[in-house]
């Protein structure tokens, strides 16, 4: 049985894959009965779909896993532990709450979109109480994000921020 730290190391490897592929480096594992049943990473640029975060990709995976094995996905998800390198965003946190996963373990906080504690507290919207723990190898996850944001997003429009306004704001 692997420890949380070991699992997080695997998730960090997935995040590195994302970085290599030019995606926001977030990696994720879904663990069911002590086995990894899905690994995922961001595929936003590849799919031109801003919602394709690592967690949602894993959710799709697990749903297929259940269909193939004729399992009730609603039951399976309630026994799933989610290991993800960055705090799930508001969208992903809501999805995981709707599916009632057992726990969410994340690396670094997500100051831009974090849906567990950082920007908006999604757990307050739902009755399901999910065990949530942060800051598991958070520094390493953050380092990957920093590396990504040093570069530029190849798909973003060139001048999204108005130059004049940027000056005002700083």
């Amino acid at each position: 049985m692997a420890s949380t730290i070991e699992w997080m190391n695997v998730a960090l490897e997935k995040a590195k894959d994302a970085l290599k592929a030019g995606e926001v480096p977030v990696g994720c594992l879904f663990i069911y009965k002590n086995k990894v049943i899905s690994t995922g990473r961001n595929t936003v640029n590849e799919t031109r779909n801003a919602t394709r975060h690592a967690e949602l990709n894993c959710i799709d995976d697990v749903f297929r896993f259940c269909q193939l094995r004729k399992l009730n996905y609603m039951e399976v998800f309630t026994d799933v532990d989610v290991i993800v390198t960055v705090e799930p965003c508001i969208m992903c946190a809501a999805a995981l709450h709707q599916l009632k996963v057992r726990s969410i373990i994340y690396g670094c906080a997500n100051d831009r979109f974090g849906g567990c504690t950082s920007v908006f507290e999604v757990p307050k919207l739902y009755e399901t109480r999910i065990f949530i723990e942060g800051n598991v190898k958070g520094n390493e996850a953050m380092q990957l994000l920093k590396e990504f944001y040093k570069g530029t997003n190849p798909n973003a429009p060139e001048c999204k921020v108005k130059k004049g306004r940027k000056r005002n704001a700083t």
Binding site: A50, T51, C89, I90, M91, A94, A95, G115, A156
Partner: peptide
């Protein structure tokens, strides 16, 4: 780029997942 600048019409108020998905999609 994504749904930048688009208008979205919904029958009902969206849940947190959908609302944030629309925000990510700009």
């Amino acid at each position: 780029y994504l749904c930048t600048g688009y208008w979205v019409f919904l029958l009902r108020e969206p849940c947190a997942m959908c609302a944030m998905a629309l925000l990510h999609s700009r």
